[in-house]
């Protein structure tokens, strides 16, 4: 039930139950985004439409400058389109004020970044607990929650380390734990393996896939990493501000057999 007064009852999440599988967590309709570069207006997105199902693992691919990142930011609720509409968790983000957007980002979406973006002044535990503080969760409960997820991502022994004392892979694990702190329905991963070596990158991809399968959280990832395609349910290719093509898992696997793992 979502009409309760507390926040938590409103943050419905996933459950990979059959009855909700057809639900869409993100719906984008004719999304256009323009940037002003000096006197010129650059159309980064020229009218993109895409529906993303609950529990899906979806990769957005495309060369730099294709509008991939812009589109990614739009469906992640951290940027707004010039025209077109985006629904995240059934809410038209154009209708949401600043405070409601903050609520959406806090409760419904988890973010994972290429450069981790952990707060360097805080320990792993504090970093993971931070979103629960913004959500208004009592401190003790938040600490327990943060410890629980850090344990889940395999960092139960590094709770009190600062990011500078952790390896890249460990920092990304903290970031993944942080993204899940408020049990979001969507996790956005922006090039999550780009700063990691091949082996660590693989572990991170494996972890994301596991969380996707086990917790039913929808994962949307912008990436260059071919191994990411391997685990994706769908791959969306963006080029020149448009969706070039959308491939399902079956087609990807055929293509991948001819792609060598070059460690990137």
């Amino acid at each position: 039930m979502t009409t309760g007064s507390g926040n938590k009852s409103g943050i419905a999440v996933s459950g990979a139950g059959g009855d909700v599988r057809t639900e869409y967590v993100v719906r984008a309709r004719d999304v256009v985004k323009e940037f002003k570069m000096g006197n010129e207006v650059v159309r980064a997105l020229k009218g993109i439409s895409l529906d993303i199902r609950r529990g899906e693992y979806i990769s957005i691919m495309g060369p730099s400058g294709s509008g991939k990142s812009t589109f990614f930011n739009m469906i992640g609720g951290i940027d707004r389109p010039n025209s077109g509409s985006i629904f995240i968790a059934d809410s038209d983000i154009a209708q949401l004020g600043e405070s409601e957007m903050a609520f959406l980002r806090c409760h419904n979406i988890g973010y994972i970044f290429q450069s981790y973006n952990l707060l360097t002044t805080m320990t792993a535990l504090e970093n993971v607990q931070l979103p629960t503080i913004f959500a208004g969760m009592p401190a003790e409960e938040g600490t327990i929650r943060a410890m629980e997820i850090l344990e889940r991502v395999g960092l139960g022994h590094r709770l009190h380390n600062k990011p500078s004392q952790l390896s890249g892979g460990q920092q990304q694990r903290v970031a993944i734990a942080r993204s899940l702190a408020n049990r979001p329905s969507i996790v956005l991963a922006d090039e999550p393996t780009a700063n990691l070596d091949a082996k660590t990158g693989k572990e991170i991809i494996g972890l994301l896939r596991e969380l996707n399968k086990e917790e039913g959280v929808t994962i949307i990832s912008a990436t260059h990493d071919p191994r990411m395609l391997d685990v994706s349910d769908r791959v969306v290719w963006v080029n020149d501000g448009m969706i070039d093509r959308v491939e399902n898992r079956e087609n990807i696997e055929i293509r991948l057999s001819s792609v060598d793992d070059d460690g990137h």
């Binding site: 979502t2 943050i11 459950g15 004020g97 997820i149 889940r152 086990e214």
Partner: peptide
């Protein structure tokens, strides 16, 4: 870890409040 106990109903709408 990331599973919510609530929200088993089908067409539920996730409510957005003010932060």
């Amino acid at each position: 870890v990331a599973t919510n106990t609530g929200g088993t109903s089908g067409g539920r709408k996730e409510k957005i409040y003010s932060q």
